[in-house]
Design a protein around this nucleic acid. Structure first.
Lengths: 128, 128
DNA sequence: TTAATTGTACTAGTTTAATAGTACACTAAT
DNA sequence: ATTAGTGTACTATTAAACTAGTACAATTAA
């Protein structure tokens, strides 16, 4: 109900990312129907046009297919989903590494930091 | 000269980040004078008001101190810089971990991926 | 055919980041 | 006192993201 969106990024992109994450994690499977534009708009508390843009962009990326009168569906192309997962992973990893390097950290320090986090805050994994 | 700014983030924040990275890497030392508002504006190719906002926000964060008629300087408080470095590091690491977890990756997979990148693309480190 | 649900298109308005230009205030050097 | 360089303040304008509302098009089921 309350919208937990970062103001620092377009809402439609945040929603796109969220959907892609669900696809990649297997919450949505190939061929699954997504909520309708109006349904999802109400659910996440944004305008229907914003959701339309989300689906439009996802269709341009060949992640979903929209059919008038029927709905919007995850692509049947399983390989496309695998590629998506690799793309998303690469983007996240690259940004992490370049950001850390810009601060002067080495690969070893990056690894050590993540290992530290794994020891302490691994509660976030079991809570999901 | 040509402005290499991401359209996805306010320019003033990108400049803020760049300055903070330089501070944390030791390019700027405590007490150092930063370029004047007008100088930096020309250098990076943006409006002077944008730089003013950069320095204003950095002063609000107690990273720099502005003195009328003299210039803008890195804080003398060395501890503040240490805290800044920890804050920046934590934000980057946390975002990386949560993003990867949202995609369903484990800590082990995160570490493996970074090790892979360290083997291949370690040219970026020597080139700096 | 009719009604309901879906995606799609269009116009108008608000908010924020950034630009552009001007003016003022303070400091240091001459 | 004057000048140059600095930070600061203000107004107006532009562009993009998002909102709001309405209307149209295609599919499905009754």
């Amino acid at each position: 109900m309350t919208r937990e969106f970062s103001r620092h990024k377009p809402i439609y992109k945040q929603i796109m990312e969220h959907i892609c994450q669900d696809i990649v994690r297997g919450v949505y499977v190939c061929g699954n129907k997504l909520p309708s534009v109006r349904e999802l708009a109400i659910e996440v508390g944004v305008n229907a046009n914003t959701i339309q843009r989300v689906y439009q962009e996802l269709e341009r990326d060949e992640i979903v297919v929209s059919k008038r009168g029927q709905g919007t569906f995850i692509t049947e192309d399983e390989e496309r989903i695998n590629v998506l997962k690799e793309e998303m992973k690469k983007e996240i990893v690259q940004r992490f590494i370049t950001d850390m390097m810009k601060m002067g950290f080495t690969y070893d320090e990056m690894l050590t930091t993540i290992k530290e986090e794994a020891k302490n805050g691994d509660s976030s994994e079991s809570s999901l």
